[in-house]
């Protein structure tokens, strides 16, 4: 059993996006965070102080731990932003605005 089967989901065709240059598959309707989780990725930010990895924490847009750079726009909350075909998702370093 997986959640898609459990809910009898019939999403549209999968598409691809890239995460740090690697191609991953995503489903229409997923958020960036859901697509990354489904691809086995749990960290996509490195903190600006200690450089530690972070990913989803609260899952509802409150904690801002899941900030990520999507199509060169930094500080997007992966748990809110829907994934779109061809998205370029990058691990966000520091403030997201550094070079």
């Amino acid at each position: 059993m997986n959640p898609l089967e459990l809910a009898d989901a019939q999403p549209g065709p999968a598409f691809t996006v890239t995460f740090d240059g690697r191609t991953i598959e995503a489903l229409p309707g997923q958020t960036v965070a859901a697509a990354l989780w489904a691809a086995g990725v749990t960290a996509w930010r490195s903190t600006r102080g200690a450089g530690r990895p972070r990913g989803v924490f609260c899952g509802i847009g409150m904690c801002f731990d899941c900030l990520v750079t999507v199509n060169d726009l930094p500080n997007q909350r992966a748990c809110l932003v829907p994934v779109r075909p061809g998205d370029t998702i990058r691990t966000q370093e520091g403030t997201g605005h550094d070079g």
């Binding site: 600006r48 520091g94 403030t95 605005h97 550094d98 070079g99």
Partner: peptide, 12 residues
């Protein structure tokens, strides 16, 4: 007086 504080940024 009010002060506004932004998100953290590099030295822009």
């Amino acid at each position: 007086g009010f002060v506004l504080v932004t998100e953290p940024l590099p030295r822009l």
